[in-house]
């Protein structure tokens, strides 16, 4: 069932200005209400479509809620073990250097379980793009602490809130990787507002162009809402993200190659 404001549907003089990217297929997905990951994945697919790389792209999926998008995304995908996508993407990119290769991982996957893989891939200057959907929680397991859970954040394994003395500090991966010589582009985006989503799309474009130019490793971390893992209502997700997460994970470009035009 579809509904519009006008009973007869859009008037004839209206033109369609926004529709679902064909790279997202037509199926519904199983992610929770108010999840931020589908927004990030949508603009990522739009970017690949606009770059004309649809048939030239290989995605390596980590393990998390977003893994379900392997069944939706209309591009070639490999699913990796939890945390190991950067190693698997290295294998793909090294033997197919002219393809556009990216990983799609969460904070639990990339920063908690797979820190070694992402750091070494970055240090080697592997010419793929790593994308981290950072919601500061293990969403798929139902809200547990990851390496990016912020201080004070309540999870099922940090019941009174994450405490620096007992649980350590969150890892700011983009800041950490930006200092490595093999890294060409690092940025952090957000998808909790429409403007944030649009800006994140530009960051994806810059990272993928960095890869296309062969300038080195590129990383985009996207802060995404996880109302389920934060124990707030879906509608409260953006405010929680604004108040709790973004002060720790400020958005913007941290490193950018001089030759990059986009």
């Amino acid at each position: 069932m579809a509904t519009t404001g006008e009973a007869s549907g859009p008037a004839a003089e209206m033109r369609k200005v926004f529709t679902r990217s064909p790279l997202l297929g037509s199926d519904t997905h199983s992610l929770c209400p108010g999840c931020g990951e589908p927004n990030a994945i949508r603009v990522l697919m739009e970017t690949i479509e606009e770059m004309g790389e649809r048939g030239n792209t290989v995605c390596v999926l980590g393990i998390g809620c977003y893994t379900a998008f392997g069944a939706l995304m209309q591009i070639d995908c490999q699913q990796a073990m939890h945390g190991r996508a950067p190693a698997q993407a290295t294998g793909v990119k090294r033997v197919l250097p002219d393809r556009l290769v990216f990983t799609l991982q969460g904070d639990g996957d990339m920063v908690t379980e797979g820190l070694q893989e992402i750091v070494h891939a970055a240090a080697r200057g592997e010419r793929f793009t790593a994308i981290c959907l950072n919601n500061a929680a293990f969403g798929e397991t139902g809200g547990h602490m990851t390496a990016t859970t912020v201080l004070g954040q309540r999870t099922k394994s940090t019941l009174g809130g994450r405490d620096a003395g007992r649980h350590g500090h969150p890892i700011k991966l983009p800041e950490m990787l930006a200092g490595l010589d093999g890294v060409a582009y690092v940025a952090r985006g957000t998808v909790h507002t429409p403007v944030g989503v649009k800006k994140t799309k530009k960051l994806f474009r810059a990272a993928l162009e960095t890869q296309r130019l062969g300038l080195g490793f590129s990383l985009v971390e996207v802060v995404t809402m996880c109302p389920t893992g934060w124990f707030v209502s879906a509608a409260e997700g953006p405010r929680f993200q604004e108040e709790k997460l973004l002060p720790v994970f400020p958005v913007g470009e941290l490193k950018r190659p001089r030759d990059l035009r986009v």
């Binding site: 390596v60 996508a85 294998g91 197919l96």
Partner: peptide, 9 residues
């Protein structure tokens, strides 16, 4: 996992 990726490619 690199071998996984390259084989898959």
């Amino acid at each position: 996992n690199m071998v996984w990726g390259a084989t898959g490619a």
